[in-house]
Design a binder for these strands. Structure first.
Length: 559
RNA sequence: UGGCCUAUAGUAUAAUGGUAGUACAACUGAUUUUGGUUCAGUUUGUCUAGGUUCGAAUCCUGGUAGGCCAACCA
């Protein structure tokens, strides 16, 4: 019920408005959308936005969404990508109605081409790529007709069939639409419909040696599937005129194209070409490197599908250029993880604490809340003993103002345990603090505190002899600048050299031993973590999904 | 140089001719056994010049700025 209210209050984006008014006007009884990836790379956060839009539309309004692979260029497309794309969409929480491929329509598309030839609207051109480019003209000067433009229908039919049969080498001929070489829209100057490519296709094998261009495949595929609202990004705006022209001349189901501005995230790149470079040139460990903005990278990093959907909902859909602040994505994942993750204590950079008034061989089992945000989450056992680790950061001999942590003579609480007081600082020959001797207040035990002592700071800790060693990988933004693509020179010059920091040995409380790959943890005062897929029985590896908000760090930065 | 698209706070997005709102970010403060969470509050905006109108972020015109278009890529 509360969800429904929320829905109602939320305003629609411009595409939802178009759909609503089409439905209200009785133009359609239900709608069909499609998500049309080319299987030549992995899906990234920008695609997530498009996926949420297309599938979201058909969950808000009657209708369904297809998954259609736009696989008309055999030289760049691979089955590996088909599989990853399907996995990512499912993981995001969406289910398509039909799984389709543009290559399913190669026969149909060929028939469409023949029909266009018969209508005198397409011709075979023997010009070279360079000649076609020259004759195209440019923004200010009209193009020139190809010398092959006036071939007879029969001659075109014969030549096109021979192209299909493989009688001509790559690049020697094309099929072109006969529109208008002086058209203001360059895409309407007799666009190429088919090209010859003697290449193996991931699905049709060697059946074909001619392949349709995007403009002669996409719109017709939409039409064949009765797609009502074909949604794409702004760079396809000029294609819409051609899209409509072909549908009109073929007299097939009139799908309509609508464009929105692709979503851009700061401190990263989301072009497939650039992501591929990062992978191939080993700036990252692969498509699923946790620093990558790919869906698979975000998944490995510990992002949840809920948080990504929430993010896409919040950033909205519009037509203007944008560069979205990654802090919103981080906000979304923190918000979700805060609700669902179990709390654990892990020390990254240990400093030994000895509780001198605690018996040496003694140990106690304390209870720690699994999640204070969730009353049903329960508790875990935490062993406490005389020798402990805290973070180096959490002790300072000469603290700055407003430092609430352990300092000589002062008291802090150990989370879920006791209040301790710093009594003595032990240093090595170089003057480095190697151990801090404390006393504890026995009656300050968490949950049954009768000490009446108030302390400012609470620290996380682990019992030395119970500590479990693990590796922790800390990630930061991949680039040093907000928009690497708009900087001078190569975008790779702006990679953040500190985007990965590995803590080879961190010390965790024993409760982490039962972690499964689905678990989400909040390491107290450190951030949210999940098990990395490289984790094993011998070596536990955690990925930091995102830090906690840290107002103290901010304070320090201000100086 | 032509055409097309776009312009609301630092960022993103609403307001559909009638009170410029929301979220994130930033900043105060309260609460807190996480410097987390939560809560209360503050700062910041209609690109510009005209026009239409009782009234313009919204409609019109000019300008400015950004983006896209001259692949046998999608």
């Amino acid at each position: 019920m509360t969800d429904f209210r929320k829905e109602e209050e939320k305003s629609m984006n411009f595409i939802e408005e178009i759909v609503e008014s089409d439905l209200a006007a009785g133009k359609y009884k239900s709608i069909v959308t499609r998500f049309p990836p080319e299987p030549n790379g992995y899906l990234h956060i920008g695609h997530a936005s498009s996926i949420c839009l297309n599938f979201g539309l058909t969950s808000k309004f009657p209708g369904y969404t297809n998954l259609r692979f736009d696989d008309t260029n055999p030289t760049t497309e691979e089955t590996e990508y088909v599989e990853s794309i399907k996995e990512d969409i499912k993981w995001l929480g969406f289910q398509w109605k039909n799984e389709l491929f543009a290559s399913d329509y190669f026969d149909k598309l060929y028939e469409f081409a023949v029909l266009l030839i018969k209508k005198g609207l397409a011709y075979v051109d023997d010009s070279s790529s360079e000649q076609i480019a020259t004759m195209k003209g440019n923004h200010t000067t009209p193009g020139q007709n190809s010398p092959f433009r006036e071939r007879s229908v029969d001659e075109n039919l014969g030549l096109f069939e021979r192209m299909k049969k493989g009688e001509f080498p790559d690049g020697s001929r094309t099929l072109r639409a006969k529109i208008d070489m002086a058209h203001q829209n360059l895409l309407m100057r007799d666009p190429i419909l088919y090209r010859i490519k003697h290449a193996h296709h991931h699905r049709t094998g060697n059946n074909w040696c001619i392949y349709p261009m995007y403009d002669f495949a996409h719109g017709q595929s939409d039409s064949i599937e009765n797609v009502t609202h074909s949604i794409c990004t702004m760079e396809f705006v000029p294609h819409r005129e051609l899209y409509d022209w072909i549908i009109e001349k073929l007299q097939i189901f009139p799908s309509h194209q609508y464009e929105f501005a692709r979503r851009n995230l700061n401190y990263t790149v989301t072009s497939k070409r650039k992501l591929l470079q990062l992978v191939n040139e080993k700036f990252v460990s692969g498509w699923d490197d946790p620093r990558m903005p790919t869906i698979t990278g975000l998944r490995r990093r510990g992002y949840t599908p809920e948080s990504i959907r929430d993010f896409c909902e919040r950033i909205g859909i519009a037509k203007r250029d944008n560069l979205i602040d990654v802090s919103l994505l981080e906000y979304c994942i923190r918000e979700h993880l805060n609700k669902i993750s179990q709390r654990r204590m892990v020390v990254f950079d240990p400093l030994k604490i000895v509780i001198s008034n605690f018996p040496e061989m003694h140990e106690e089992i304390l209870k720690g809340e699994d999640n204070p945000e969730d009353p049903d989450a329960g508790h875990r056992d935490i062993p406490f003993s005389r020798d402990l680790y805290i973070e180096q950061d959490d002790f300072m001999e000469n603290p700055p103002k407003k430092y609430f942590r352990l300092t000589p003579g002062q008291m802090v609480r150990l989370k879920s345990a006791y209040i301790i007081k710093c009594e003595e600082v032990i240093k090595d020959d170089a003057g480095k603090v190697i151990e801090v001797r404390c006393t504890y207040i026995p009656e300050s035990r968490s949950g049954s505190d009768t000490s009446d002592i108030n302390v400012k700071g609470t620290l996380h800790w682990v019992s030395m002899k119970h500590a479990v060693k693990c590796e922790v990988r800390l990630y930061d933004r991949l680039f040093r600048v907000e928009d690497p693509s708009s900087e001078e020179g190569d975008f790779k010059d702006y990679i953040n050299p500190d985007s990965l920091q590995v803590i080879e040995t961190a010390y965790a409380e024993p409760a982490v031993l039962t972690t499964t790959f689905n678990d989400r943890y909040q390491f107290l005062r450190k951030g949210y973590f999940c098990l990395d897929r490289e984790s094993s029985e011998e070596k536990i590896v955690f990925n930091r999904t995102v830090t906690l908000k840290d107002t103290w760090a901010k304070e320090l930065k201000k100086g």
